[in-house]
Design a protein around this nucleic acid. Structure first.
Length: 703
DNA sequence: TCCCCTTTGAAGTGA
DNA sequence: TCACTTCAAAGGGGA
């Protein structure tokens, strides 16, 4: 049946004696009675319905009145008719968008008396009330006309749905926007996620196309034209649509409130004077509607997942620092672990390709931001960081500038600090490390280990250029075969084990009962740091400077920052080969014998360019810094035994495996510290590191 | 208000 | 083919 005929038929039917006695009946007639279920009563049983004003013969309700009900209705009740809009954007009778019970009472301060029938409390956010439109109850003899203000002439019938006497239902419009959009400014909160396309923008329709000239609204009263616009035409029948007035003049009040007292200032965005920023954001989003973003790659998915965890673990907020940490973790993941994210990325990519078959990344080129990528050519200094980073990448050496800090307090320090004078407290130890290093180098082939007594190891610049700051001799790191020492191997072992633990699910939940309230990150870290503190500094100095919690991620990060290389099997093959001998060209007259690992064998395969590997140098810096307390916070006295004996212990994360793990860490650290043999760090090598964990392990085994 | 920083991976650009 | 560039996310911070 032609829709015009249908409309005529319906109109005739409604006017006849057999017309549906109630609007609901009329609606059911129109909709065919089958698929549409009338919404439930607006208020639950027992909840008093809001008082309604006396029926206004001039107002038959807004467009939603195509389905008028005895009870107040909100625009959202149009949902079943429109169908295409997300259901969560619409309130259901008696509930807000989240399905929560609405305020039953009607108290509408600041709303003009004659408009209160159209609003009711919709909720409250931070003490700020929000209001929403409601359709007034149908009068005993519903006129079924749109709610033009009192005195306003009714629009011509051509603008009305002949079936119901009101505007046509959007069900007939292909591009039909939800008319409830006018509710949005009133109802959105700071966290609302109303899609931008639900907003009409001045001069455009929701698809960004030019709107009908607003002045061409035949039959619409002059004072109402600002609220409607031609929405289209179907089979010669024009349709009108409510529009949101241009938001250019804050406060962004809904049209019906124009001239009404402004809502409480707390409800307005202090920056714009309008409603919370959602509106502006949505407007911007609407402007950018055609901007299709790239699908995320595997790392981006991982980054998004890990960011909150890293923030919680390290107590840092800067995305740059967080991303650096996540980047390290990403690289530490196995291929299998990464495969999960590559699969997700592929899924996203396919979905994106399906949704936007004609889109390609080149469409976004130059749209995101106007970068001045050539700024590096302006000044040499400006180009250094990137060049350095690239060079470091090739060398598998992370430049210090890109290293994440191990603690938030340190992270807030300026990156490029002048070298500070050693404090009295640390002078002795600091000198010990540096003297050793400096004694082992020549201007020709050995770098100066620039140990900054204040900055932690991860902040010390070991990049070649920085190391050369006070030395004429460049570090000749071998690009393809970096010098790998036993220290590197030992530390790699530790790091690998740390990774295993850190990536375990149990560890991702520090408060997990599987781990125990005390056997947490800090207590796990304690043995390691106890060992380190015993080895590297006087406890008093160490504890004096502890300010922030120790996390395992801190250790891991510093482990990675210590390790400049990730040796491949072939590069490791030479790691057990003695590196130095007193007669080696690399050794020096003033070299400390303590660092000569084997004086009887000359270097063979691996020709060191420095008496220390990068790892060893960094490790010494870390140890040197430890006494300054960069990792902060007093070590918490833990009683792991109590936790480990907990019946809630996880089978896959048993006290025994934990103790074994910690023991292995300590052994690894002890091993590498022994390799370093740099006094005074080499105080009580074996015993201080493992006795405690061994004891715990024995206790665990005995249970 | 805009852009940078910082990361990895994918994809585009230009030589 | 290769090297380089841009952009995905995100939020602090600087200009």
């Amino acid at each position: 049946m032609d829709i015009r005929d249908e409309n005529n038929h319906i109109s005739e039917t409604m006017q006849s004696e057999e017309a549906s006695s109630t609007p609901e009946d009329a609606a059911v007639d129109i909709l065919g009675q089958t698929s549409y279920t009338l919404p439930p009563p607006p208020f639950p049983a027992g909840t008093p319905a809001p008082p309604q004003p006396a029926s206004d013969p001039q107002t038959g309700g807004f467009i939603s009145n195509i389905l008028p009900e005895p009870a107040p209705r909100v625009y959202q009740q149009l949902v079943p008719l429109m169908g295409s809009a997300p259901a969560h954007l619409y309130s259901q009778p008696g509930t807000d968008r989240q399905g929560q019970l609405r305020h039953p009472e009607v108290n509408v301060p600041g709303i003009p008396e004659n408009m209160r029938q159209y609003v009711r409390p919709a909720g409250e956010l931070h003490g700020v009330p929000f209001w929403e439109f409601v359709t007034p109850p149908p009068p005993s003899n519903p006129p079924l006309r749109p709610p033009f203000p009192t005195g306003a002439p009714a629009p011509p019938q051509s603008a009305l749905d002949p079936r119901i006497g009101g505007f046509l239902s959007h069900t007939l419009l292909e591009t039909a926007p939800p008319v409830s959009q006018q509710l949005v400014p009133l109802m959105v909160t700071n966290t609302a996620t109303v899609p931008a396309h639900l907003y009409s923008q001045p001069g455009t329709d929701r698809q960004g196309l030019l709107r009908h000239p607003e002045g061409n609204v035949p039959g619409i009263p002059e004072n109402m034209r600002q609220y409607v616009r031609p929405a289209g035409e179907l089979h010669g029948v024009p349709f009108w649509d409510f529009v949101t007035p241009p938001p250019s003049n804050p406060p962004l009040l809904p049209p019906f409130l124009t001239g009404a007292p402004a809502p409480p200032q707390s409800a307005l965005d202090p920056r714009t004077g309008g409603f919370p920023k959602n509106r502006k954001c949505e407007a911007k989003q609407d402007e950018d509607r055609l901007y299709i973003k790239k699908p995320p790659n595997a790392f981006m998915i991982y980054l998004k997942e890990q960011r909150p965890k890293v923030m919680a673990e390290l107590n840092i907020t800067g995305s740059a620092a967080i991303n650096a940490v996540v980047g390290k973790r990403w690289r530490s993941l196995s291929k299998d672990q990464q495969a999960k994210y590559f699969d997700q990325a592929e899924t996203e990519r396919c979905r994106h390709a399906t949704e936007h078959p004609d889109w390609s990344t080149k469409e976004n080129y130059g749209k995101k931001r106007k970068r001045t990528r050539n700024r590096t050519s302006s000044t040499a200094s400006a180009s250094e960081p990137k060049q350095e980073a690239q060079q470091a990448k090739r060398l598998c050496v992370m430049p210090a500038q890109t290293q994440p800090s191990s603690s938030s307090s340190v992270a807030k320090e300026p990156l490029e600090q002048p070298q500070r004078q050693p404090t009295v407290t640390n002078l002795h130890y600091q000198q010990s490390a540096c003297v050793q290093l400096q004694n082992t180098q020549t201007a020709a082939d050995a770098p100066v280990c620039q140990v900054n007594p204040v900055l932690p190891a991860s902040r010390i610049d070991f990049s070649p250029s920085a190391s050369l700051a006070s030395s004429a001799a460049p570090i000749q790191l071998q690009k393809d075969a970096p010098f790998v020492s036993d220290t590197d191997e030992a530390l790699l072992s530790v790091v690998e084990q740390l990774d295993l633990l850190l990536t375990s699910e149990q560890f991702q939940q520090p408060s997990s009962p599987l781990i125990g309230p005390q056997l947490n990150q800090t207590s796990l870290a304690s043995p390691v740091y106890s060992a380190l503190s015993t080895l590297c500094a006087s406890p008093d100095t160490f504890f004096e400077n502890q300010k922030e919690p120790i996390g395992f991620a801190d250790i891991q990060d510093d482990m990675w920052s210590i390790l400049p290389v990730t040796p491949q099997p072939d590069t490791l093959s030479c790691s057990n080969t003695p590196k130095y001998s007193p007669n080696s060209p690399a050794s020096l007259e003033n070299s400390s014998p303590s660092i000569l690992l084997d004086s009887s064998v000359a270097p063979t395969e691996c020709q060191p360019v420095s008496p220390f590997s990068e790892t060893e140098k960094n490790m010494m810096s870390l140890l040197n810094d430890l006494k300054l307390g960069p990792f902060a916070q007093p070590l918490q006295p833990s009683s792991p035994q109590a936790d480990w004996s907990s019946p809630e212990s996880d089978q896959s994360f048993t006290p025994q495996t934990t103790a074994t793990f910690i023991h292995s860490i300590e052994e690894g650290l002890s091993s590498l510290l022994n390799l370093l043999e740099v006094p005074p760090f080499f105080a009580e090598p074996q015993q201080s590191c493992s006795s405690r964990t061994k004891s715990l392990l024995e206790q665990s085994n005995s249970q």
